[in-house]
Every structure is written in structure tokens, then in C-alpha cells.
Deep mutational scan, measured.
Amino acid sequence: MTSCHIAEEHIQKVAIFGGTHGNELTGVFLVKHWLENGAEIQRTGLEVKPFITNPRAVKKCTRYIDCDLNRIFDLENLGKKMSEDLPYEVRRAQEINHLFGPKDSEDSYDIIFDLHNTTSNMGCTLILEDSRNNFLIQMFHYIKTSLAPLPCYVYLIEHPSLKYATTRSIAKYPVGIEVGPQPQGVLRADILDQMRKMIKHALDFIHHFNEGKEFPPCAIEVYKIIEKVDYPRDENGEIAAIIHPNLQDQDWKPLHPGDPMFLTLDGKTIPLGGDCTVYPVFVNEAAYYEKKEAFAKTTKLTLNAKSIRCCLH
């Protein structure tokens, strides 16, 4: 018999989150649709729960009410004593943790798909938090293969000092899905179709896995975050240069030392320094102006996964 890495157990509980950011409308629209008619997301033997994560922000069509829901799922915020004085999103995070967690427990949901849009030209993107997770690498390989020839990129946010504390991190297997470009507060049919297909293929993978299909060893190309880059700023902290036209919409493309990065209003080009080629992502993302992030630098690498098969009882 072929030796293989056996994944822990079959997958039982899956959640699909929309509206973690209330103005990213593809996930909101799909989740609302699936709450009314969820036939397309159901798979035999699998509990799939669509869920609106930040209903107040969705109602106002804004990213958040008090603070970013997708950055506060750490033990400090989840452990705060519940009171009306807490920011709305912290209270909501505790409610979500109660419903789908608790985080880092045996009772937490197996998989959470968190649906997002970006204003950046990132196409279909899967966000991975753990480079050693054979199950998710296999799932992402399946999704990428199923979507081809449509490109699907994998963004690895594993980093020693950049801690995200994402909404989906309460699950055993957290999956971020990011599709763009799409303006905030807008629905685009092409973007919706791409996100819908990503979810379909992900659920198909889980179904095949649960039925005992063995997935042979595989490898995927990923883009691992190195650092986030702020806009150049003046002495008052105001933005002093904008994304250069040569960099705009060039997510995932190589940016070499000396290539144009920013452009000042008086026409001066600010190039990339250093001696390493990087791959920019979230270029000129609207939501990241407040976070002082013009783009993120990534490096390209390959992740390998062992063969996996479900432990059938």
C-alpha cells in the first residue's frame, strides 16, 4: 500500500463567511444568496454554514464600524470581559468565536472560507496562513488546477512579526479568498463568478477527501510576504508620492531593483532599492491607505505537500 500522510479526520463542519468587511460585496451577495438557497454549497455528509460576519458594517456598506474585524481574533480580544464599552467588532468577534470556535479547541469548525474583495488587480487569490499544512496545500492545488487556465495565486502570510489574527483563524483550516479588482461597494459579475467557482472547487475537494480519495504528493507556487511598504510621506505625515503608473495593476509581476515604484507630484520617480527582485501584491489597495500600506513585497517559492487521505471509520 502506498505510504501517505493521513489527515486527522474527515471534514464535518464548514463555514463560509461574507461581510467580514461590509463594503466587499461579492461575499456579502453570495452568502445572502446561499442563506436563501444553499443547494449549490451542500455536499453529502458535510455541514456547510453561510454566515454574515459583520452585519452592521454590511448594512452601512462600510469596511467596519469601530475597528477591523479581520485583525482582532487574538486571545487578548477574544478574552476581554464582555461589555457595551467594547468596540462593536470586538464584541462581534467574541460572538463569532462562540459560534464557530472556540479558537484553538477541538470544537472549532474544521474549515472557514472568508470571502473578500480587493481594489487591487490580484485576480483569484487564496490566502494561506501555514506553509506546513498538507491538507490546505492539497486543497489549493486542486482549486488552482480546477480553475486553469484562469490564474489563481496563493498568498502566504506566515511571518515572524506580522500577526494578522484573522476572522477565519478560529477554524482548524483557515482559508482566505480574495478576488479583484473590484471597487468597494460595487458588485461585478465576473468577480462574483470567479469567487463562486473557487468555493465550488473547494467544496468538491472536501467531498472527494471525505469519500476516501487519496491525493498524491503535489507542489504549489506561493508568494510569501516579506514586508509592507508605506507611501513616501512629508514631515507632516502626508502622502508625498503615489503608486507609479508602471507599478499600478502589476500585482504578482516581478519588481526589480531600480524599477519605478512611486511618483511625486513634481514628476520624480522613486525606484525600488535593494538588490532583490520582489513580487508586489495589494498594490494601491483602497482599504490600506489608513493602514499606511502602499503594497506588500513578496518572494516566490514552492511548497510541497505529502499525499493525504481521509481516515475512514
Score class of each variant (00 low, 15 high):
residue 2 T to A: 08
residue 2 T to E: 08
residue 4 C to Y: 09
residue 5 H to S: 10
residue 6 I to H: 14
residue 7 A to V: 07
residue 8 E to M: 09
residue 8 E to I: 15
residue 15 A to V: 05
residue 15 A to S: 04
residue 19 G to C: 03
residue 23 N to R: 04
residue 26 T to N: 01
residue 27 G to W: 02
residue 31 V to G: 00
residue 32 K to T: 11
residue 32 K to S: 11
residue 33 H to I: 04
residue 37 N to A: 12
residue 47 E to T: 15
residue 53 T to A: 15
residue 56 R to M: 07
residue 64 Y to I: 06
residue 68 D to Y: 04
residue 76 E to C: 09
residue 83 S to V: 10
residue 84 E to F: 15
residue 96 I to P: 06
residue 98 H to I: 11
residue 113 F to V: 11
residue 114 D to N: 05
residue 122 M to Y: 02
residue 124 C to A: 12
residue 132 R to K: 13
residue 136 L to E: 04
residue 139 M to A: 00
residue 139 M to R: 00
residue 140 F to T: 05
residue 140 F to K: 02
residue 141 H to Y: 14
residue 145 T to Q: 09
residue 148 A to E: 09
residue 153 Y to E: 13
residue 155 Y to W: 10
residue 156 L to T: 06
residue 159 H to M: 09
residue 161 S to N: 15
residue 164 Y to L: 10
residue 164 Y to T: 15
residue 165 A to W: 14
residue 170 I to R: 07
residue 170 I to E: 03
residue 170 I to M: 14
residue 170 I to D: 02
residue 179 V to M: 05
residue 179 V to E: 01
residue 180 G to W: 00
residue 181 P to E: 03
residue 181 P to K: 01
residue 182 Q to I: 15
residue 184 Q to Y: 13
residue 194 Q to W: 12
residue 195 M to S: 12
residue 198 M to T: 14
residue 199 I to G: 01
residue 201 H to L: 11
residue 209 F to V: 06
residue 213 K to R: 10
residue 217 P to K: 07
residue 219 A to C: 07
residue 220 I to Y: 04
residue 221 E to Q: 06
residue 227 E to V: 02
residue 227 E to K: 06
residue 230 D to E: 13
residue 232 P to W: 02
residue 234 D to R: 11
residue 235 E to M: 15
residue 240 A to M: 13
residue 246 N to R: 11
residue 246 N to G: 09
residue 249 D to L: 00
residue 250 Q to R: 11
residue 251 D to V: 01
residue 253 K to G: 10
residue 255 L to R: 05
residue 258 G to N: 07
residue 262 F to C: 00
residue 263 L to R: 07
residue 263 L to H: 06
residue 264 T to Y: 05
residue 270 I to S: 03
residue 276 C to Y: 13
residue 278 V to N: 03
residue 293 E to K: 06
residue 298 T to W: 02
residue 298 T to P: 00
residue 300 K to P: 10
residue 301 L to V: 14
residue 305 A to S: 14
residue 306 K to C: 07
residue 307 S to R: 10
residue 308 I to P: 03
residue 310 C to I: 09
residue 311 C to P: 14
residue 312 L to F: 11
